[in-house]
Design a protein around this nucleic acid. Sequence first.
DNA 1: TATTGTTATACTCTATAACTATA
DNA 2: TATAGTTATAGAGTATAACAATA
Lengths: 147, 147
Amino acid sequence: MDSMQDAPTDGRLSAFLGYNLKRALSVVQADLAQALAQFQLRATSFSALLIVVERPGINQTELAEALMIERSNLVQIIDSLAGRGLIERTPFPGDRRRHALMPTAEGEKLAEQARAVVSDHEDRVFGMLTPRERTDLHRLLTKVRSV
Amino acid sequence: MDSMQDAPTDGRLSAFLGYNLKRALSVVQADLAQALAQFQLRATSFSALLIVVERPGINQTELAEALMIERSNLVQIIDSLAGRGLIERTPFPGDRRRHALMPTAEGEKLAEQARAVVSDHEDRVFGMLTPRERTDLHRLLTKVRSV
DNA sequence: TATTGTTATACTCTATAACTATA
DNA sequence: TATAGTTATAGAGTATAACAATA
């Protein structure tokens, strides 16, 4: 059969989708980390910044839910972004427990620059896929993640 | 257009393939960890055991390369599997620096049981995909991971 | 009583440097 | 000099419990 694959060094593990998912992600993450280093952003702080720019006024509980991380682990990420003047914790109208997270002008500018760099990164690491394959992969991953 | 998606709470982040890759993997990993808990195996120790069963006599450097992890981080994984009598470090013929890793009978048995459980796990987390979609996803991930 | 943000803590995963014994 | 296995360590990611302020 010409659908036989060359035996990879990780053998039948390669038959598992989950294993290939992990190996693919590790390739992508390594390139992304390098791409974001110039902005001193990690993957999660980039994601957090992007959402604050897109949904100004969001609070930390909502942001943690959107990113699917713990509230407690978000604190230091917000601390870092706020410390660099990229976002601000402002009073939340009508509820003094909450902080309305707002991007600064500088934060919006950096978010846009970083977004372009991440777009280039995606073209790089997914460049071996045809446009059709990329939309297929996107659709399949979306299905899996929303189980 | 009916290809419009409902706006997800993570907004335009969802347009990035890498982000969906990460979210999909986190769903898969959570289910896998639960599935392997009954064997007191983690994802990586399961993978290591499977490869030793498949490639008896492999040494630690080769195993680390096959799993794409650091040799140093493999040591405790091997310690744990060996401590449970699932594999053994045996003398490597002709080179006393190396260990030839060999599965025990019990190790082979557990590997087979765990493999079946992981197969069920994959049917569970990828069950919303058609067989065709699953092979498509496998092919696309293999392309990405081998960049 | 419940929620928001926060602190502290612990566990896993990952990466690097340095050591030993062997080659 | 180089390689295989090992130890120690530090950074990052992740999860849980508990607290103060506020609702």
